[in-house]
Each structure stands twice: as C-alpha cells, then as structure tokens.
Computed example of a mutant assay.
Amino acid sequence: MEFVVCSLAKIDEVDTVRHAEDVGVTHFGAGEGPLLFSDPYQYLALAAQQTSSIKLGPYVTNPLTRIPAVTANSMATLNALAPGRTFLGLGAANNALRSMGNRVARMSELGDAVRISKGLLNGERLTQTWLGQEREIMFLDPDSGWYNIKDEVPMWVSTGGPKGLKIAAEQADAVAFCLGPDPEMIKLVRSELDRAVAEAGRAPGSVKLIGVSWFYLLRNGETWVDAITKGFGSGPISSCLTNLPMMKAHEDKLDPVIVEASRKAAMAYLGDPNDPNPPHYLDVWRSYMRGFHADHLPLITKELVDYWCLYGSPDDLQEKVQLMQECGVDMVSAVLSNPATVKRDITDIGTSIISRS
C-alpha cells in the first residue's frame, strides 16, 4: 500500500526518513513553518542522500512564503538528488502564515502557484504576473545538471474546501484532505472530487485522494485520552480548522453534532475574532506540532478524535485503514505531531498497519 508520513523538518533528525523507508513508508513529507521548524528543503536534500526508494517532498509549502519559481527550483534541485522520487505539496498554508500573523493564501494565488510550478517543472515557457508585471519565465539551463526537470514531479494540493478541491481536480495529481475513518465525510469528499474531475474534462481516477489523519497506537489499558496526551496532541483541532469550509458547504450531508463540535474547537484554538483582546498569534502557534499541551485537552472530545484520527490497537488500525480505502481514499497519510515520539510512531505504523496490509 502507499502510505504517507508527514512530520516537521528537524535538521538533526534526518535519519527519521531512512527509518520510515525501512518500515515500508512510501512517501515522506516535511512540514513547512518558517518560525517553527527547520527548512524543509535542506532537510529533504539530506534525506535524499540517505535513502534510496522513499518519495520526498514538502507537505506542504504555499505560494506566499515562497514564490512559485523559487518552489519549482527547490523541487527541481531536490529532483536532481532523488530523481523520480519527489512530489510537490502545495496549499493555502496554516501554521506557516498564521504563525506570522498573516492571512493564508487566497485560492486564486494557490491555483496560480500550482499552474506556474507545474509548468516550470514540465519544462514549459509560461507567463506569470508578479510585482504588478506580466512576464514570461522558464528554466534557462535544464541540460547542465543544475536541476532535474526530466523526471516527473507529481503535484499534490492540500485543501479543506470546495475551491481547493476544484483546483486539484483541474491541475493536480493528488489532493490531500484531512480525513479520519468516517465513511460519511470520506464519501462526501470522494464524490465531490470525482465530480470536479469530470467537470474538468479529466479521466476518472486522474486525481488521487489522500486521507490525512493523526496517528497513535494504543498500548494495553490505554484510552482515547492517552492517544491525545501521549500521541497527537491538538492534531484533531487542526483537522477541524482545515475542513471547516467543506463542512459548512455540506452541512446538510454531515452529522450536525460533528460539524458544530469541529467549529467550536477550531474557533477556540484560534481565538474569538470578536474578542477585543485576542491572544497573540505568536502565543497561539508557539505550541503547534509540539505534542500535548494541557490547555488544548478541554477542546478535544472523543467524538472529534474518533472522527479525525487513526488510533487504537493494531486490529483497530488495520480495520480503520481498510474502511478508509473502501470508502474512496487512495493513499493514507499520518501526520506525526509530537517531535519527541516520531520514530516510535513510525515504528508503530510499520508494525500495526504496513506489515499487516
């Protein structure tokens, strides 16, 4: 099976990627957060030299912290180190921009970034508008070894709403969507993706659906609370925040209890926009992807954990992954949000899911 692991880029722990390859993980994505993590491309470049088969890419970058031409160059450079085993994940950004107090990318900006990055990596000469100027751009010396645009770089779009899904359907090879083992939500996203692909005039199945979940293997006697405190921490809240646009657009097709619980958790995490003295964004995001923090526990209910997360015994995990696949997920992805336990979690993914598939 194709299984994707996403973790933050920590420059002194590149051997984590080799460990993931050893247990059978097929794709490794490095998160981007300029104020939070190590640089993903430096991390992935080192990982490329320590691995031989696992596919590597930013998971995900965005159009604003790096303009498309810079992103395309970074990917083409990585593709020279790991020919044919790279992928480019692009999204509107969550932590990368919010942690700097800035807005996320607009869907028009995301769509343009996908078009330009994809075109450059395909060796095209294309037009972009940047700094108020419309100019033609292309890679100028593709045959001298500076970068590799001969081997294909699959394009992944990360989104949580209908507009992003449409961009993926029109231009991408895969769409990454926060999904747990809930048939209702998976079938909704699968149906909307298939419809958008058909409307774009592309063949059925042209765009893979990647279900992005939060992972923890329960030990004997542990419960869902242990999955939070010893595993993914506030991860489920991130899924709530990311998927609010899709949930709002299709409230009539989803469990209203989950929709409301997801909305409340997301808003509580970010802070009330009407609060005259909201928490500072640096304080809000300081703990992101840093494991468990007690302040987050009251925001996370068992219903949210069941809805957005892959957790349980090996048998539970195997059953949940199979359910996700049966409902329309093509690739399963686990986000590992606790830097202290990433290697443990990768080992657990190998023993409880990959080796049993």
Results as ranks from 00 to 15, higher is better:
3 F>C: 08
6 C>M: 15
6 C>D: 11
13 E>V: 09
25 V>P: 01
28 F>H: 05
28 F>P: 03
32 E>D: 14
33 G>R: 01
36 L>Q: 13
37 F>C: 02
38 S>E: 05
42 Q>Y: 15
46 L>R: 13
60 V>D: 03
70 V>F: 07
80 A>K: 11
82 A>K: 02
92 A>L: 06
97 L>S: 07
98 R>L: 13
101 G>I: 10
108 S>H: 15
109 E>K: 08
119 G>Y: 05
120 L>K: 04
120 L>I: 08
125 R>Q: 13
125 R>G: 06
125 R>L: 10
143 D>H: 12
143 D>F: 14
147 Y>K: 07
152 E>G: 03
152 E>C: 07
153 V>D: 01
154 P>G: 03
165 L>R: 04
201 G>C: 07
206 S>N: 01
209 L>P: 01
214 W>F: 11
215 F>Y: 11
219 R>A: 13
222 E>T: 05
223 T>N: 03
227 A>I: 08
227 A>W: 07
229 T>M: 07
231 G>C: 01
234 S>H: 12
237 I>Y: 05
243 N>K: 04
262 S>N: 00
265 A>I: 10
268 A>R: 12
269 Y>L: 06
274 N>T: 12
295 D>K: 15
306 D>E: 08
313 S>T: 13
321 V>S: 06
322 Q>F: 01
323 L>T: 10
329 V>M: 02
335 V>N: 09
338 N>L: 03
340 A>R: 13
348 D>P: 06
351 T>H: 10
354 I>D: 04
356 R>V: 00
